[in-house]
Design a protein around this nucleic acid. Sequence first.
DNA 1: TCCCTAGTTAGATGAATCTCAAAGCAGTGA
DNA 2: TCACTGCTTTGAGATTCATCTAACTAGGGA
Lengths: 127, 127
Amino acid sequence: MSKQGPVLTLTPVAAEACCTPLSSQAVSAEAAADLAPAFKALGDPVRLRLLSMIASADDGEICVCDLTPAFDLSGPTISHHLKSLREAGLIEGDRRGTWVWYRAVPEKLAALSALLNVGTFTAARAQ
Amino acid sequence: MSKQGPVLTLTPVAAEACCTPLSSQAVSAEAAADLAPAFKALGDPVRLRLLSMIASADDGEICVCDLTPAFDLSGPTISHHLKSLREAGLIEGDRRGTWVWYRAVPEKLAALSALLNVGTFTAARAQ
DNA sequence: TCCCTAGTTAGATGAATCTCAAAGCAGTGA
DNA sequence: TCACTGCTTTGAGATTCATCTAACTAGGGA
């Protein structure tokens, strides 16, 4: 690499291996390899809170400067977790002047939610 | 401890910090600490496949003897991953004679799915 | 009782992850 | 141009994790 990549390149890691619920059909090894990183990114309490703060932000986006003070962690550590979420395709961000703003990627969240959706499954077993 | 715990104790790790979508309200630090382990358990391709095989099994349950051959991994490794899923509250299992059978815990999957549910969020932003 | 199979537990090892301090880059304003 | 702030990247140390082999427990059948 030439020197150093741009700050906010959004690597589109996982293609949308979308939407067939886990419980109606077993996922392929490829789909699992594709989707697991997103769940892994959610598997840390700090990142889960970060994502929820971002996803529930008033205007659909939030400044890093509003995220960092909410945690008892250093700036670099928060930045590291935001990078994980970014690389998992769960959030995206861009710089505007001095500040960097992040917003959620609802399609990605929806895909994960759909995978875990057990509607038919639970219904079938409930009766 | 007396000697060695029972084989299949199902530790109910996370209380059901159920159901308010991530995008409508930020999760508390406690709820995040409660739910993150379940996502973490899903964050490995092998465990994701295991869970999906279990959740999509014909009779709602499946024998370990049917799971192990599907992977290029040793028995103990599969057992280790099943233990992770068990401790995350995603599956439960019991021994019947020679074999051990596992089934999914749909309530837990539903809780995770609900948390990621961005229905209102996406609808609000789509138009 | 003895042996065989199914599955788990224990222990070890290499890889990945979380965290921080220090350094670097980007933008603003004097 | 220079200094200042905001955020990211780098590099290092400590911890956690995935995987294996070896040993163990549980049950079935001769």
